[in-house]
């Protein structure tokens, strides 16, 4: 890409036409680098690439874990909602806000919540587990695409990881 003589001459003539003073200033590079900088740079670049690859893999793992955790939380909430909807036999006057978890569990057992619907519950858990596995595989693929996009779009990967871990 760089200069051939013809191109250099063209640029010089163009410059003389627009800026005679500037064209008379000798073209020198006034900047310097530390001794041995260019000898060491390829190794530094190689190290940085290895670090970036490790960070990339860590980000994929973190994002995958987060998505799985979100999916599991939603599943848990759905399961609780399902159980409560099908066991609405608690005392209408009982104030749930004043009960702790053990008391709620005792009340559910007393009302026969788990004996009546045990098979349904097992079936539900199997379905949830299967769904979770397939969602995880899907999310892992999506996550890789997201990471590629973020890297290509010049979004600082380390900042993203920090944000996710905070």
């Amino acid at each position: 890409m760089n200069t051939n003589k013809e191109n250099s001459d063209e640029i010089r003539k163009e410059l003389e036409g627009i800026a005679p003073r500037l064209s008379k200033i000798e073209k020198v590079n006034p900047f310097e680098v530390p001794d041995g900088y260019f000898d060491n740079l390829p190794r530094l670049v190689s190290d940085r690439i290895n670090e970036a690859s490790t960070a990339h893999r860590a980000a994929v793992r973190t994002l995958t874990f987060r998505w799985t955790a979100v999916a599991a939380s939603i599943t848990l909430i759905a399961a609780f909602a399902y159980i409560f909807n099908n066991t609405a036999h608690l005392d209408d006057n009982m104030d749930l806000a004043q009960l702790d978890i053990e008391e709620i569990a005792d009340a559910l057992v007393d009302e026969g919540a788990f004996t009546v619907e045990e098979e349904d519950l097992i079936e539900l858990l199997i379905m949830v587990e299967e769904g979770k596995q397939s969602a995880t595989e899907e999310k892992e693929s999506d996550t890789n695409e997201i990471i590629e996009y973020l890297i290509d779009s010049d979004i600082d990967l380390t900042t993203i990881i920090d944000e996710l871990e905070s």
Binding site: P34, L44, R48
Partner: peptide, 19 residues
């Protein structure tokens, strides 16, 4: 600045590697 140039150059090489 040299240090800034060094950082920018290394980031650029990582982009080159990825792309």
């Amino acid at each position: 600045d040299h240090d800034d140039a060094n950082d920018v150059l290394q980031n650029a090489w990582i982009k080159v590697w990825n792309g």
